[in-house]
Protein backbone atom coordinates (compact mmCIF):
# COMPACT_ATOMS: atom_id res chain seq x y z
CA UNK A 1 0.00 0.00 0.00
CA UNK A 2 1.05 3.58 -0.64
CA UNK A 3 0.91 6.11 2.18
CA UNK A 4 1.59 9.85 2.17
CA UNK A 5 3.23 11.04 5.39
CA UNK A 6 3.27 14.71 6.37
CA UNK A 7 5.19 16.47 9.14
CA UNK A 8 4.34 19.88 10.59
CA UNK A 9 6.05 22.50 12.78
CA UNK A 10 8.84 21.08 14.96
CA UNK A 11 8.20 17.57 13.63
CA UNK A 12 9.15 18.81 10.15
CA UNK A 13 12.29 20.40 11.62
CA UNK A 14 13.12 17.17 13.44
CA UNK A 15 12.59 15.00 10.34
CA UNK A 16 14.34 17.46 8.01
CA UNK A 17 11.53 17.14 5.44
CA UNK A 18 7.85 18.01 5.07
CA UNK A 19 6.61 14.83 3.44
CA UNK A 20 7.34 11.20 2.61
CA UNK A 21 5.75 8.80 0.15
CA UNK A 22 6.00 5.29 1.55
CA UNK A 23 5.23 1.91 -0.03
CA UNK A 24 4.47 -0.73 2.59
CA UNK A 25 4.06 -4.49 2.24
CA UNK A 26 1.69 -6.50 4.40
CA UNK A 27 -2.00 -6.97 5.14
CA UNK A 28 -2.14 -4.76 8.20
CA UNK A 29 0.15 -1.86 8.89
CA UNK A 30 -0.39 0.46 11.84
CA UNK A 31 0.70 4.06 12.31
CA UNK A 32 3.28 2.79 14.81
CA UNK A 33 4.81 0.51 12.16
CA UNK A 34 4.77 3.33 9.63
CA UNK A 35 6.66 5.54 12.11
CA UNK A 36 9.36 2.87 12.53
CA UNK A 37 9.74 2.86 8.74
CA UNK A 38 10.10 6.64 8.36
CA UNK A 39 12.13 7.15 11.56
CA UNK A 40 14.07 3.96 12.39
CA UNK A 41 16.38 5.73 14.84
CA UNK A 42 13.86 7.64 16.96
CA UNK A 43 10.89 6.45 18.99
CA UNK A 44 7.61 8.27 18.42
CA UNK A 45 7.74 11.34 20.71
CA UNK A 46 5.31 11.02 23.61
CA UNK A 47 3.38 14.21 22.98
CA UNK A 48 3.12 13.91 19.20
CA UNK A 49 -0.36 14.12 17.69
CA UNK A 50 -1.40 11.83 14.83
CA UNK A 51 -4.00 12.41 12.13
CA UNK A 52 -5.09 9.99 9.42
CA UNK A 53 -6.98 11.58 6.54
CA UNK A 54 -7.22 14.76 8.67
CA UNK A 55 -8.93 13.08 11.65
CA UNK A 56 -7.17 12.62 15.01
CA UNK A 57 -6.27 9.05 15.84
CA UNK A 58 -3.59 7.07 17.69
CA UNK A 59 -0.58 4.94 16.85
CA UNK A 60 -2.55 1.67 16.86
CA UNK A 61 -4.68 2.81 13.90
CA UNK A 62 -4.51 0.38 10.93
CA UNK A 63 -3.79 2.03 7.59
CA UNK A 64 -5.33 1.60 4.14
CA UNK A 65 -3.87 2.21 0.71
CA UNK A 66 -3.93 5.91 -0.12
CA UNK A 67 -4.15 7.16 3.47
CA UNK A 68 -2.55 10.47 4.41
CA UNK A 69 -0.86 10.31 7.82
CA UNK A 70 0.32 13.44 9.65
CA UNK A 71 2.60 13.78 12.68
CA UNK A 72 2.69 17.09 14.56
CA UNK A 73 3.21 18.65 18.01
CA UNK A 74 0.42 19.96 20.28
CA UNK A 75 -1.50 22.70 18.49
CA UNK A 76 -1.14 26.37 19.46
CA UNK A 77 -3.62 28.36 17.38
CA UNK A 78 -6.14 30.95 18.43
Amino acid sequence: MNITVRYFANMRDRMGRAEDSVSLEGETVTVEELWRRVSPQQALPANVLIAVNMEYTDASRALKNGDEVAFFPPVTGG
Partner: peptide
Amino acid sequence: INYLKERAPFWKRESTAQGQRWVEHN
Protein backbone atom coordinates in the same frame (compact mmCIF):
# COMPACT_ATOMS: atom_id res chain seq x y z
CA ILE B 1 -12.48 29.68 20.74
CA ASN B 2 -11.50 27.23 23.48
CA TYR B 3 -11.99 24.10 21.38
CA LEU B 4 -10.48 25.75 18.31
CA LYS B 5 -7.34 26.34 20.40
CA GLU B 6 -7.40 22.73 21.56
CA ARG B 7 -8.07 20.99 18.23
CA ALA B 8 -7.47 23.14 15.13
CA PRO B 9 -4.02 22.31 13.72
CA PHE B 10 -2.14 25.61 13.92
CA TRP B 11 1.39 26.11 15.25
CA LYS B 12 2.94 29.41 16.34
CA ARG B 13 6.63 30.13 15.80
CA GLU B 14 7.80 33.23 17.64
CA SER B 15 10.74 35.50 16.85
CA THR B 16 12.54 36.67 19.99
CA ALA B 17 15.92 38.28 20.69
CA GLN B 18 17.19 34.72 21.32
CA GLY B 19 16.01 33.51 17.90
CA GLN B 20 12.96 31.63 16.66
CA ARG B 21 11.06 29.12 18.78
CA TRP B 22 7.93 27.01 18.41
CA VAL B 23 5.31 27.79 21.03
CA GLU B 24 4.80 24.56 22.99
CA HIS B 25 1.45 25.21 24.63
CA ASN B 26 -1.38 27.72 24.80
